[in-house]
Design a binder for these strands. Structure first.
Lengths: 136, 136
DNA sequence: CGGCATCCCGCAAGATACTG
DNA sequence: CAGTATCTTGCGGGATGCCG
């Protein structure tokens, strides 16, 4: 655990200076929460160790725009989670596949997904219940 | 797996209608990616099965504003992940604790955290490398 | 103490159009 | 085919101030 807890307790009100741009968990969650990243990782992981072309990825991620897929893949490549391979034909064919690092992320992500699928129905029920209570 | 894959493959371009507001994974990731939710769950989980007061939570989550802590806790309570207990003193003391459901989320979240702490340094290195390449 | 109401801003992300 | 470029918007979230 590299995140903060014991510190700051006694210091009172010195919030606002160091904040937390360093916390690795925060950084990761920002990326995972980026709305498409986790989907892309999932789809690529399902195809692993094979590759997928841009258009193929787009087809497998319903609702994603050309732009967001492009941006998301660039981010994955920059992070070293995915690799880009261009076949020099005309028109060019671009293939993507997860790196070992990317694949290693799929495990934790899958755990979260499983949790979601198991419990989201309950959570929805809780929300509807809270809504009714709120109206009273 | 309740998420989509085999569908949409043959239908071509019918994106934009059903999109995905139903996908439980997406819903969960939206909440987890909400920048403070995961932190709050973590801190509450560390205190479990004990409770934490509002101000105490604020102290343990460096950088969070009063508003965001409030909003985040409300969200957790609505989802049934946490419970709120008000002690009718003056001024009132409000205590929060995770429900069993909330606690069950901590496992998958901790896995993600562990992954982050293990690999974020490498990812940062990858990014710096990509930046250098980009300048060439 | 533990909020809620209000105002405000930046950025993620959608729509659209163009290119090697 | 696989992208960039540009414009635009929604809303997450910060700051501030008031209330029971």
């Amino acid at each position: 655990m590299t995140t903060y807890e014991s510190t700051y307790e006694t210091t009172g009100d010195r919030r606002g200076d160091l904040l937390d741009p360093l916390c690795p968990t925060r950084q990761l969650l920002d990326r995972v929460g980026a709305k498409w990243t986790s989907m892309a990782v999932k789809v690529l992981a399902e195809a692993a160790p094979g590759e997928l072309r841009f258009a193929e990825l787009r087809r497998r991620i319903p609702g994603i725009s050309q732009k967001m897929l492009s941006v998301t893949l660039q981010s994955l490549v920059r992070d070293g989670l995915a690799e880009r391979r261009v076949e020099p034909t005309v028109p060019p064919a671009v293939h993507y596949r997860l790196t070992d690092l990317g694949l290693s992320l799929e495990g934790p992500l899958a755990a979260l997904r499983e949790w979601a699928e198991t419990h989201m129905a309950q959570i929805d029920r809780n929300n509807r219940l809270a809504e009714e209570v709120g109206r009273s």
